[in-house]
Design a protein around this nucleic acid. Structure first.
Lengths: 145, 145
DNA sequence: TCCATTTAGTTTGAACTTCAAACAATCTTG
DNA sequence: CAAGATTGTTTGAAGTTCAAACTAAATGGA
């Protein structure tokens, strides 16, 4: 029991660090920083493509995102489009180049998932899902002052 | 099966994002950035406390770390100590203040682990360990060019 | 309608982080 | 001992982020 505890603890920490590091390397497209890739990712997945909504999702100010979008526009990954209904609002759209990056990122996640469940039986997979949901649920509801 | 796959994928992604975000908030000590906290953590856990070794572990240049250590020294979290055997080398030591921060960080990880295994039987915990080790093992050995 | 207020996005200047490169001090080895 | 390697520091440039000031557009109440 105590052993399980420290093992889970240990693996969570090292796994987390590994993923952070590897994500940076795996997605290391020349001319794109990891920050920029996350912006591209957010734009590709966004329901609401407005700059303010994206900024909230990314937990940065609209000012920061505006600068970042300008850079990515210049690099050919994003483009701005004014809304007709509300001419203050601007939707951010991915270009083909951005969608390619997004595909790469998805492949990364798929590989990770494959690795996680490859050696598990279906019953074991169900347990994994349960455990992961426990952790996620915990953090989703926890209040941090 | 396909459902398990997408669930694991989904949970891994959202969990990862949650942890990233929450770690920043949970460890938000006034006057210390998340970067600085990671430096403190590395110093507290280091086997080899030399600046170069720490920089390698943190995957930053010695120049960057030298600057960061200077700041943290000024803030009273770290101190430098020249080695007697090799007077080029400098060991970085944590102060009491730094050890307090480290304790906080450990508490964070413990809470995370508790959340992970609280609702699982011992058999289920064993499965979780196995799955996590699969992922970690995969990433530890994968080569990224 | 008019105008005060709110909302959406941009620009700018300051602070911080990181790196590469140049540098100084100290070992190591032939 | 001298050349080269190692350890750490400094510095200048580039990138990131934010707060604050700003422009443009929508909204709502008189």
């Amino acid at each position: 029991m105590a052993e399980t505890y420290s093992t889970v603890n240990q693996v969570l920490v090292t796994l987390f660090n590994h993923i952070l590091r590897i994500e940076e390397q795996a997605l290391n497209t020349p001319g794109l920083s990891i920050r920029e890739i996350h912006v591209i990712e957010a734009v590709c997945q966004a329901q609401d493509a407005r700059l303010t909504a994206l900024a909230q999702g990314l937990h940065v100010t609209t000012g920061s995102l505006s600068v970042a979008v300008s850079t990515l526009e210049r690099k050919g990954y994003l483009r701005r489009q004014r809304r007709q209904q509300d001419r203050r609002a601007i939707d951010i759209h991915p270009t083909e180049k951005a969608l390619d990056i997004q595909k790469q990122h998805e492949a990364f996640h798929n590989e990770m998932t494959d690795a996680a469940i490859a050696l598990l039986s279906e019953a074991e997979q169900a347990v994994l899902v349960k455990a992961l949901e426990c952790i996620d649920d915990y953090f989703a509801h926890k209040e941090w002052t």
